[in-house]
Design a protein around this nucleic acid. Structure first.
Lengths: 242, 242
DNA sequence: ACGCAAGGTATACACTCGTCTACCGGCACA
DNA sequence: TGTGCCGGTAGACGAGTGTATACCTTGCGT
């Protein structure tokens, strides 16, 4: 521990600069937050240590710890949304585009296929970005108001994306866009929980996937029943106004 | 700071022991967690200081910090569950007990009344226990695995209570208990988010209440549509198997 | 060729933290 | 009358933290 004659490995030739310090700090913060399981608990020194950097280097790039937080969120947030969007463009996802449709039963069949595809898509993504997901959700109900707002906004954006997709792909009778976004929001939020289960209980993954699909289908059935009372009237059922 | 001659205010006669130390610690922890906005960030010394106690006193009552957490959760959890239960026994809640019923529409009308009552009940409770709720939800996705498990268990218990009530009060056709608990779980989890909104946006409280009611009703409509296809078959609709 | 800013490092300081050991007053109860 | 235990206190130790100051490269612009 004493002073050895000469070392100074600091200015050694490091031909590799793949991650540029700032990046290393963010990655370390993410990794630590996912293992230690909180951003708020993280320490400046701890992150720097894990990144193999001097504690003070932190100040070169971020002023607060919130500062690093919003930077991470911005990066991961765009990654998530674009990730979802591009996977939504895959062939399988576009397989069941349909022109117009007056039969609700047909619409529900399409909805089922779309639900299955979407659920798998989200859960796969979550599994592929386990760390980011865990940390993000923690911030959703977390300490910093800034983070919380940003996180809520991200969920809302995803819900809006989903609404567009749903409105574009399937035509459920008499379901207005306003109701659609409400349904989408509910789905997105519920998926937060399903995703948690999915990560926490690997043995039940298939079952959880089915539960999520059933949930979505239930909502669509409900939406049709609530919004197409005329169609259901023939069956003799009378639904209370919503 | 030096040693004054004689003091020792410690063994002074304290006729008041309204909150017995342990209680003081838990209350301080709750207050601090709700203001500092995290249990994980809390420090043993910090809590003791806020409670006006010696740091070591903490060890007399709790061994971990998780220990205090589960104690708080147990207290508040039972308060919540019994609160919900006794309010569920109020006259208004029992108003629509019904014997047997073959008409799903009738069942749905009952469901709507029950949904309205239950939603109001939960949201009132949340508003009355704002601090506890915020802290609790934070722990639901929080750092400590112990807390997380405990919190999930509490939600699950509430869902079970709700299932019993639902099965007892209203008879939806062909909805099995297994499906009922699944629906109840989904409702409870969604109420977590609705409650957050409710606390965060006081101006929209009535609107949020309506959204929650609509969500629940949607689920029941969906459940009937999914589980009583025979009833709906007359309408000419054919629903895909779930 | 010089300067200078960016990124990184080393050392140091004042704090806070969790925990350990030891001491003390009341109360129950045998 | 003693003798434990329970709840509370005091002080100290070692480790970890955030931050301040100062020094050292490297690269780029002029």
């Amino acid at each position: 521990m004493a002073d050895n004659s000469e070392k100074k490995k600091s200015p050694a030739k490091l031909p590799e600069r793949p991650t540029s310090g700032r990046q290393k700090l963010m990655e370390s913060a993410l990794a630590l937050a996912a293992s230690t399981r909180s951003l708020a608990t993280l320490g400046l020194r701890e992150v720097a240590r894990h990144a193999g950097l001097n504690p003070n280097t932190f100040y070169r790039h971020f002023k607060d710890f919130d500062d690093l937080g919003v930077a991470m969120l911005k990066e991961l947030g765009t990654e998530l949304r674009t990730g979802l969007r591009e996977r939504r463009m895959r062939p399988a996802a576009k397989g069941f585009r349909l022109s117009d449709l007056s039969n609700p039963a047909e619409g529900l069949a399409q909805a089922q296929a779309l639900a299955r595809e979407s659920v798998g898509l989200v859960l796969d993504f979550v599994k592929d970005h386990r760390e980011a997901y865990i940390v993000g959700i923690r911030e959703l109900h977390g300490t910093s108001p800034v983070m919380r707002k940003a996180m809520q906004q991200m969920l809302e954006d995803i819900a809006k994306d989903m609404t567009e997709d749903l409105l574009g792909v399937l035509k459920l009778p008499a379901v207005t866009p306003e109701e659609m976004i409400e349904v989408a929001r509910v789905i997105v939020r519920q998926m937060v929980f399903f995703s948690m289960d999915y990560l926490d209980q690997p043995a039940r993954q298939q079952e959880i996937k089915r539960e999520a699909e059933r949930f979505i289908l239930l909502l669509f059935w409900g939406a049709i029943a609530a919004r197409a009372p005329a169609l259901l009237a023939q069956s003799g059922l009378k639904f209370p106004a919503i």
